[in-house]
Amino acid sequence: MSLGRRSARAVWIVAKKEFMDNVRNRWIVAISGVFVALTLVISYFGAAAAQGRTGFQGLEDTVTGMISIASLLVPILALMLGYAAIVGEREQGSLLLLLAMPVTRLEVALGKFLGLGAVLAVSIVAGLGVSGAVVVAAAGAEGIAGYLAFIGGTIVFALAFLSLALLMSTVARRRSTAIGLAVLTWFLLAVIFDTVLFGLFIATGGTFSLAGGTINLPDWFFAAELIVAPPDAFGYFGFTLFSIEQTFGFRVALPWFVSSGTSLLSLATWTAVPLVLALWRFRRLDL
């Protein structure tokens, strides 16, 4: 079918340009570097506070230490990379010519998503790969399968926020509005959501006990985290990969439905839904 091949070709050309732009401006190198530095610092110094020693920890402890920082950092990187993808070209004027080319809007938007997604995926694989290799060399290869799965989950997590960034980029009429929306999204989903949810839980008469060092929370609390906040879903993905049961010194009893599988499903949904909305919105846009 020639139409299918032409579409695939158009998507590929747009994706390639987005990717090469980020090779040229060294974003890929920068993001990879951030991941390497962060992982190694956390792995090396992570045990200092809890155990009073320094030195590379194993892969499992490295991931445990990474989760909370990655759940803040990965959204920032993905949002920064993607917020201007459409609105930037629209504001500058180059979108007019791009859409007059023999491409459909669907192809342009998909191309941008895949090109920028590849930037994130390559940076994450390179960054976590290099640092993982250092950790393995220093502390052994135990937990390597979990670490590789963690790399995969981090990519899906990044794609979810790239999708959100693309949605903002098609909704906003100006670059500055898109930045505002990106910051707001990051703040709501990655920073404040847990606090608000916990506040609501207490305000509605909820109680929790720390009996025996275990935090007991109702199932709906976990369900809300899993469904509403991708950073939490990412966190649970990491915890359940290694059957980690303790966080900040407390044991958390997870309900049956919190697993690597359901966490990943949540992240995948957060990738698909904003992307579809962005495509739908972009198709109707008047330039």
Binding site: A10, S94, L96, L97, A100, M101, P102, T104
Partner: peptide, 20 residues
Amino acid sequence: AHGIKRRIGFLPERIAFYNN
């Protein structure tokens, strides 16, 4: 869209390209 736009050359008003 592919077939028709392939045969059109377009110059928009206030054209802009990619500065990089």
